[in-house]
């Protein structure tokens, strides 16, 4: 039984470490070397993590790569809050279950999460269309372009989007 648990943990740890999307606070993102990074970062404000227990715990579990514990935590702390749906969307993205992530994302309607919702929406559309072999680079690029033009002074978002376009180009 212990062996099975160990194998399960290893599998979960492995799936977590290979997640293409990484949650980072904007503070942490300011220290990223954007020229060499291979990850797609999900930006979140430090203040949002500090104010929300559920987002804070999600961040801790993801940093420790404990997807299984995060799943249990989200199950026992289920609610209808925007923070919960954001945490759950990110959890599904780490699990590479993009269809579930997209369904969960639709429940977020708080204005303060509008930018992250738009970003994740484009990411998820791209991932799902890739799974269905219907991906369209130009369409994804146009959606990222729209997001950039809506927030032209946000340099962190600019770097995130340039990395996303690079990722999309190589996963065409």
């Amino acid at each position: 039984m212990k062996l099975i648990q160990l194998i399960l943990c290893l599998v979960l740890l492995n799936s977590c470490s290979h997640s293409k999307y990484i949650l980072k606070t904007e503070q942490e993102l300011s220290r990223i070397n954007w020229e060499t990074t291979k990850f797609n970062y999900i930006p979140i404000l430090k203040s949002d993590i500090d104010k929300s227990i559920i987002l804070g715990m999600t961040n801790v579990y993801l940093e420790q790569r404990q997807l299984f514990k995060l799943k249990k935590y989200l199950k026992s702390n289920s609610s209808n809050s925007n923070d919960f749906f954001l945490a759950k969307t990110i959890y599904y993205m780490y699990k590479t279950d993009y269809t579930e992530a997209q369904k969960t994302l639709l429940h977020i309607n708080d204005e303060k999460y509008l930018q992250i919702k738009q970003l994740l929406s484009v990411d998820l559309n791209h991932e799902i269309s890739k799974e269905n072999d219907t991906h369209n680079y130009q369409q994804t690029l146009n959606e990222y372009q729209y997001l950039f033009d809506a927030n032209p002074s946000n340099t962190v978002l600019k770097n995130i989007l340039l990395t996303r376009v690079r990722y999309t180009r190589y996963n065409y």
């Binding site: 680079y137 130009q138 690029l141 990222y144 372009q145 950039f148 033009d149 032209p152 600019k158 989007l161 340039l162 376009v165 180009r169 065409y172």
Partner: peptide, 13 residues
């Protein structure tokens, strides 16, 4: 192999 050539326009409008 085929690859997309379009890029993100990140200049100031």
């Amino acid at each position: 192999s085929k690859a997309p050539i379009s890029y993100l326009h990140d200049s100031e409008i």
